[in-house]
Amino acid sequence: MKKLMIGSLAALFLTASFTASAQIDPEDQIKFRKAGYSFMSWNMSKIKAMAIDESVAWDPAQVQAAANSIAATANSGMGALFGPGTEKSIGDTKTRVKPEMFTDGEGVVKVGMAFNKAANELAEAAATGDKALVAKAFAAAGDSCKGCHDKYRMD
């Protein structure tokens, strides 16, 4: 049953990805996905500064806003920005995605689902205002990012 679900999700991901990406040229797909990941990184750094490093005063409202932004971006369908032709840099638009991102559908779905789950759980933790809960959820979200980077991103 689990394999069937993963296979179905992979097919759905790839279908949605190709349908949506057909409307946006490959260079713009790379630009948009980089912008999305940069935006999430910026928001992760805000949470890290408050919940982990404590270099910025704890502000539950700011943490919640950042976590909600991460979750919204994670759930926005960014998989559609990995369409055909985006597996390599185009002109001045660089990408660090590994070719495996385009051939390992089951693995991509697995890391994508893990990231979405972690991003949603981070938003849920932030809604509580509990700094310790946020720190734990932040670590899980960071681990899910690393899981994808390790497998599908060139250094």
Results as ranks from 00 to 15, higher is better:
residue 1 M to W: 10
residue 2 K to F: 14
residue 3 K to H: 10
residue 7 G to Y: 10
residue 11 A to W: 03
residue 14 L to A: 04
residue 15 T to H: 06
residue 17 S to G: 10
residue 20 A to I: 14
residue 25 D to L: 07
residue 26 P to H: 11
residue 32 F to Y: 12
residue 36 G to W: 02
residue 38 S to A: 14
residue 39 F to K: 04
residue 42 W to V: 10
residue 51 A to K: 11
residue 52 I to K: 12
residue 53 D to N: 12
residue 55 S to C: 04
residue 56 V to Y: 00
residue 58 W to A: 00
residue 59 D to W: 02
residue 62 Q to S: 15
residue 69 S to R: 07
residue 70 I to M: 13
residue 73 T to Y: 04
residue 76 S to D: 00
residue 77 G to Y: 05
residue 80 A to P: 00
residue 81 L to N: 05
residue 81 L to Q: 02
residue 84 P to T: 09
residue 85 G to E: 10
residue 87 E to C: 03
residue 88 K to G: 05
residue 89 S to C: 09
residue 91 G to E: 12
residue 94 K to M: 07
residue 98 K to N: 01
residue 98 K to L: 09
residue 101 M to F: 08
residue 102 F to G: 04
residue 106 E to K: 11
residue 108 V to A: 04
residue 110 K to E: 13
residue 111 V to G: 04
residue 111 V to W: 06
residue 113 M to V: 15
residue 114 A to D: 15
residue 115 F to A: 05
residue 116 N to C: 10
residue 116 N to M: 15
residue 118 A to R: 08
residue 120 N to H: 05
residue 120 N to S: 15
residue 126 A to T: 05
residue 128 T to S: 14
residue 128 T to M: 07
residue 128 T to Y: 01
residue 128 T to I: 04
residue 128 T to V: 01
residue 132 A to W: 01
residue 133 L to D: 15
residue 137 A to G: 08
residue 143 D to I: 06
residue 143 D to P: 07
residue 143 D to F: 11
residue 144 S to P: 08
residue 146 K to E: 12
residue 148 C to A: 12
residue 149 H to Y: 03
residue 149 H to I: 04
residue 150 D to S: 11
residue 152 Y to K: 10
residue 153 R to K: 15
residue 155 D to N: 15
